[in-house]
Every structure is written in structure tokens, then in C-alpha cells.
Amino acid sequence: MNAQTEKPQEKQAQRVSYLTPPANILETEDGYVLEAEMPGVAKEGLEVIVENGQLHLIGRRAPLEARGRELVRESTRLDFRRTFDLGPSIDTQRISAKIEQGLLLLQLPKAESVKPRKIDIL
């Protein structure tokens, strides 16, 4: 009996769903700035992967040490995940990331070849 009731629960737990973090992308002269909101995610829970021209952002929330009776529950507690396609103009070797108070900040520098270049006339 126990085994039967446990099985569907296990399946449910395995079905992982993620939350899409709201993001802003701005272009600067030297590159792009990407901001993504991931409340509850510390540096340790953050994963930024560049692969096959795609940028994968994964933010795992630190477990909440909440105790007692739940009176209000609005947060989902889900981990964050989002993928962006990177244009060829981005220098993937020089991408840098930091997270501050649940806000991921990514610097995506442009490759030297696509930056506007002034040509001196001889």
C-alpha cells in the first residue's frame, strides 16, 4: 500500500519546473549588459554556461529555513532557468558575471572585429 502511494509522489518530485527570471538587456558601446532577477540565489547557487552559441542561466535558491505554520505563501521557491541565444558579435571568452542581492549582472563584451573602427586616411 505504501509503495503504491509513494510512487506517484516520487514522479511528481522528479518533474522539475523552473521559473523564468525577468531580465533586462542593454547595449553599450563595448558590449551588452544583462540583468536577471533571482531572489534567494547566492553566488554558490548560480551557474552560467556558454555553449554552442547559447547562454544558459541557472539559479538555485538556498533552502529557506522557514518554520511554523504558513500564513501567506506567494513565492514559488522554484529554481530559475533561462536561455538566451548569443549573437556572433559577442566575445564569449570575456563574459563576466556577478550576483548582488539576488540580481545577476552579466557583462557580454563585443568582439573587437565588430566594434566600430575609425580608419585613418593617409
Partner: peptide
């Protein structure tokens, strides 16, 4: 912002998701 509230006998604990704020 999202809020969670817990009643833990001795105290109430509120969590509020405020990413990217200045303290």
C-alpha cells in the same frame, strides 16, 4: 513583490522577494 509569512509560535517571520534593491 512576493511575500511569504510564517507563524512560528513565538514569532511571525516574513520573507519578501526584493531582488536588486539598495538596502
Amino acid at each position: 513583490p512576493n511575500m511569504d509569512v510564517y507563524d512560528d509560535r513565538e514569532e511571525f517571520v516574513l520573507y519578501c522577494e526584493l531582488p536588486g534593491m539598495v538596502r
